[in-house]
Design a binder for these strands. Structure first.
Length: 405
RNA sequence: GGACGGGUGGCCGAGCGGUUAAUGGCAACAGGCUGUAAACCUGUCGCUCCUUGGAGCUACGGAGGUUCGAAUCCUCCCCCGUCCA
């Protein structure tokens, strides 16, 4: 069932968002502290310490591809929503305004006026999403800019350098995100290339850190399409890099959802227990606790922000497609259980009116709500883990999800 | 009173003898979106009937006419603009 969200459990598991200061920023680029572990699942709650604050995990990271979460101000994000870490994108910011410009202007944090943490994706996802505009070689990826058609070569080394120039707290290695489905043979070749790139990126990164230490971590990415053996081979090989954290990529590329979960399960027990695990590009609200139950600490997804703009709103009672006629004269708030600015002030009828009129305010209010919904869910999850009630929470979520279906 | 230009599906607006139930756009209605080329994309959009695929009916201001065939050509009428008296 499409838009179910784990909201019926809201009252029992209220969100906790209390940023804490960073303790040991000078010991390593970032450090991960496990606060609580679930006794029945692989879930854990932790603190990820960065030079730009501590991040409570499990965490959902809003996507701000072009150094902005579309529709929101940095104040909305930090003060209203309590966002501790944002995602930005190397491919997009490399093309415009350029990493050297951002370096010159004091780094990405200063450039976009964001004092909390930033994770930058390498451009590996654009290998997938812009597949018609790129060519993969052993050396790297040649992109034909979607802006002006210019050719740009992204290598494992150059993407590390660009992200260092940004001043990102967490850098991602350049990877190849394969489409679905691919043959085992193709997936294997692709995974091995990603692996070689990860080694090159890591070597380059270590060199840069030796000459100019900075509190910036580099995460490699487990690939292998939907083949457990390839996933495990990739994860095992990446352990040699002794990275500060590990990502699981190549999910949500069109595969059935159970497969995504299976890939996380195949990988998770190989990854270091004391390092954060990041599932890239997931997921729907009901999936968030499922990933956490499988040992994931970090997630990001464009769904709450993009779907907000496209009229698809996530509530504790399920999805609301705001353009539907049934909301035309609906005077209730979008989500009666939600404390966000949008829900505390505006009716569904007004939101629908703004959407139908193409008003900018619609995107602002909708994005604000959807992100709040995601962050609330993460708060519920974290609280449940800490209070040792995560299995019950998960049951509650699954049953609500099944009922809705 | 005269001269031009017009009246097309909810609206705007193409079409100017057959491939036209009628291009587009808007509106309406629905679906999609997962490390963002996305405030985007797709579908439906006269009525009735049967399962897909189709079948029938009604339609381009009105009434006649020409033609195998008319939204398209002709005649008259009605209405709307602009200009001249």
């Amino acid at each position: 069932m499409p838009g179910w969200t784990p909201g019926s459990c809201y009252k029992r598991f209220p969100p906790t968002i209390t940023p804490r200061p960073c303790h040991n920023r000078y010991l390593s680029p970032i450090s991960f502290e496990i606060v609580a572990e679930c006794s029945h699942t692989r879930a854990r709650a932790g603190l990820l310490h960065t030079a730009h604050g501590a991040i409570e995990t499990p965490v959902f990271m809003p996507v701000g591809t072009q150094a902005t979460v579309k529709g929101l101000t940095q104040r909305d994000l930090a003060e209203d929503l309590g966002v501790q870490i944002l995602l930005a994108n190397t491919y997009h910011l490399f093309l415009r305004p350029g990493h050297e410009l951002i370096r010159k202007l004091g780094g990405l944090h200063r450039f976009m006026s964001w004092s909390n943490a930033i994770l930058t994706d390498s451009g590996g996802y654009q290998v997938f999403s812009l597949s018609r505009l790129r060519k993969i070689t052993e050396h790297g990826v040649v992109f034909q800019s979607h802006l002006d058609g210019d050719l740009h070569t992204f290598t494992p080394e150059s993407t590390v350098d660009a992200q260092l120039a940004f001043g990102s707290d967490i850098l991602m290695v350049l990877d190849e995100c394969p489409e679905y489905p691919v043959s085992h043979e193709q997936a294997r070749a692709s995974m091995h290339r990603t692996l070689r790139w990860a080694r090159l990126a890591n070597q380059h990164y270590r060199g840069r850190m030796a000459e100019n230490p900075a509190p910036q971590a580099l995460f490699p990415i487990v690939q292998g399409s939907m083949f457990p053996d390839l996933r495990r081979e990739c994860a095992a090989a990446l352990l040699d890099l002794d990275s500060a954290g590990y990502a699981i990529g190549g999910l949500s590329v069109g595969e059935p959802r159970p497969l995504s979960m299976e890939m996380v399960e195949a990988t998770e027990d190989l990854l270091p227990r004391d390092k954060p695990r990041y599932a890239m590009g997931v997921g729907m609200p009901a999936e968030l606790p499922e990933y956490v139950a499988r040992g994931v600490d970090m997630m990001d997804c464009v769904l709450p922000s993009r779907n907000a703009r496209n009229g698809y709103l996530f509530t504790s009672e399920g999805r609301v497609i705001i353009k539907h006629a049934r909301y035309k004269d609906d005077d209730r708030p979008l989500d009666e259980k939600c404390q966000c600015y949008t829900c505390s002030r505006y009716s569904r009828a007004y939101l629908r009116h703004l959407f139908q009129s193409g008003e900018i305010l619609y995107a602002v209010l909708a994005t604000r709500h959807n992100l709040r919904r995601y962050l609330d869910i993460m708060g519920e999850i974290r609280h449940a883990i800490i209070s040792d009630s995560f299995p019950e929470y998960l049951r509650c979520v699954r049953s609500a999800s099944n009922n809705a279906a």
